[in-house]
C-alpha cells in the first residue's frame, strides 16, 4: 500500500455528538427564557448576561492558557453555559462588578481548580451565585425593576416574591393575605413574576427543557424528582397549616425552582449517572429546598439544596449502578 491508511481499533464510526454540540443544545434551550428576561428587563439584563458570559469565557481561556498551561477548553462552550446560568440567577439591577466576581468564583474557584470541565464537584454557576448571595445579600435579593423593552411584569415590590413573603410572615400576616395583597395567582406566576432573570417565565423555561428532552440531552428523572418532592412537601405542609406554609403552585413557580430543577440540577458533571441515583439526588434537592424555604432564614433554598446534594453525588454514583445484563 503506497497510501498510508488509517488503522485504529473498532468502532470506526462515531455518532454525530460532541461536548460542544451538547453545550450548544443547552444554550439553545436557555434562549426562550433569556429572550423573555431581556424583553422584560431591557438593556440592564442584556448587560448582565453579556458581562457574565464574557467574564466566564475570558477567565476560562486565561486560566487554562496561562496558569494550567493546557489546551484551552473554551471551545466546548461550557463556560458560556456557566455564564448564562449565572446571569439568569442574578437580578438585572445588580452592579456589573458583582457579576464579574460571581464569574471569578464560578470559573476560578468552583470549576478549574478541580481540573476543569467534568472534574468539578459543585455546579460552578450555583457556587458563584451562592457566593454572591452570601457576600452581597442586599444587591442579590433587592430587586428594582429595570426598564424593559416591553411591559411584561407589573410587579411593584422591590424584592422577589419569596423574600417579600418571608418579611410578611415575620410581620405576622398569613399566606392568603399575602397572596391577595400582591395579586399572585397560578396564572400570573406561570407567566411572569418579579424575580431574578431566569425565574421570570416558567413557560419559557419549560419550553427549553422540552427541547433538551427531545434532543436526548437530558433525562427527565432528576427534574421530576426535584419538583415532585417539592410539590409533595408543600402539599403536606400547606394541608396542615395554609396560613403559614405556601402552597404547591407558589413553590414550584417561584424562587428559581424551575430554573434549578430543569437546568442546574441536571448538570451532567454534578449529578449522579444512574437513574435511581438521580431520583434520590433530585428528591434530596427538593426536600432541602423546601426545608430552607419553610424553616430557614434565607427566603430561597434551591441553590443551597443543589450545592448540598452535589456533595452526595460521588456516594450516589458508588451506591447506585445500572442494571447489568445477565446479573441479578
Amino acid at each position: 500500500m503506497d497510501k498510508k491508511y488509517i488503522v485504529s481499533p473498532s468502532p470506526h464510526i462515531h455518532a454525530d455528538i460532541s461536548t460542544t454540540k451538547i453545550m450548544r443544545d443547552v444554550i439553545i434551550a436557555l434562549c426562550p427564557a433569556i429572550l423573555v428576561s431581556v424583553l422584560a428587563y431591557g438593556w440592564a439584563e442584556l448587560l448582565v448576561l453579556l458581562v457574565s458570559v464574557a467574564s466566564c469565557v475570558l477567565l476560562e481561556w486565561a486560566v487554562t492558557k496561562w496558569m494550567m498551561k493546557r489546551p484551552s477548553t473554551v471551545g466546548d462552550l461550557s463556560a458560556v453555559v456557566t455564564g448564562l446560568l449565572l446571569a439568569m440567577n442574578l437580578p438585572s439591577a445588580i452592579p456589573l462588578w458583582i457579576v464579574f466576581i460571581g464569574a471569578v468564583v464560578a470559573i476560578c474557584v468552583a470549576k478549574l481548580p478541580f481540573g476543569g470541565i467534568g472534574q468539578n464537584v459543585f455546579n460552578p454557576a450555583i457556587t458563584g451565585r451562592v457566593f454572591l448571595l452570601v457576600s452581597f445579600p442586599a444587591q442579590m435579593t433587592n430587586w428594582t425593576p429595570t426598564r424593559g423593552f416591553i411591559q411584561i411584569t407589573d410587579a411593584v415590590s422591590g424584592a422577589t416574591p419569596l423574600s417579600v413573603l418571608k418579611e410578611s410572615l415575620k410581620s405576622g400576616s398569613t399566606i392568603p393575605e399575602f397572596m391577595e395583597a400582591h395579586g399572585y395567582t397560578t396564572a400570573t406566576l406561570l407567566q411572569d413574576i418579579g424575580a431574578s432573570a431566569g425565574e421570570i417565565s416558567a413557560i419559557a423555561l419549560l419550553l427549553g427543557f422540552v427541547y433538551l428532552l427531545v434532543r436526548r440531552v437530558v433525562k427527565p428523572w432528576i427534574p421530576l424528582a426535584v419538583l415532585g418532592t417539592m410539590a409533595l412537601v408543600a402539599a403536606i405542609f400547606h394541608g396542615i397549616n395554609p396560613d403559614v406554609y405556601t402552597g404547591v403552585e407558589f413553590n414550584l413557580l417561584t424562587g428559581g425552582a424551575l430554573l434549578g430543577a430543569l437546568f442546574m440540577a441536571t448538570d451532567y458533571v454534578t449529578s449522579p449517572m444512574s437513574t435511581w441515583g438521580g431520583v434520590i439526588y433530585g428528591a434530596g434537592i427538593g426536600l432541602i429546598a423546601m426545608m430552607i424555604r419553610y424553616f430557614g432564614s434565607y427566603p430561597e433554598g434551591m441553590s443551597f439544596a443543589i450545592l448540598l446534594m452535589n456533595c452526595t453525588v460521588p456516594l450516589l454514583n458508588m451506591w447506585f449502578h445500572q442494571k447489568k445484563y445477565g446479573r441479578a
Binding site: T19, T73, G118, V269
Partner: peptide
C-alpha cells in the same frame, strides 16, 4: 472515521 481529539469526561 478520523477520531476526534479526546476531551474531558463530562459524566
Amino acid at each position: 472515521t478520523r477520531r476526534q481529539p479526546e476531551t474531558g469526561c463530562i459524566r
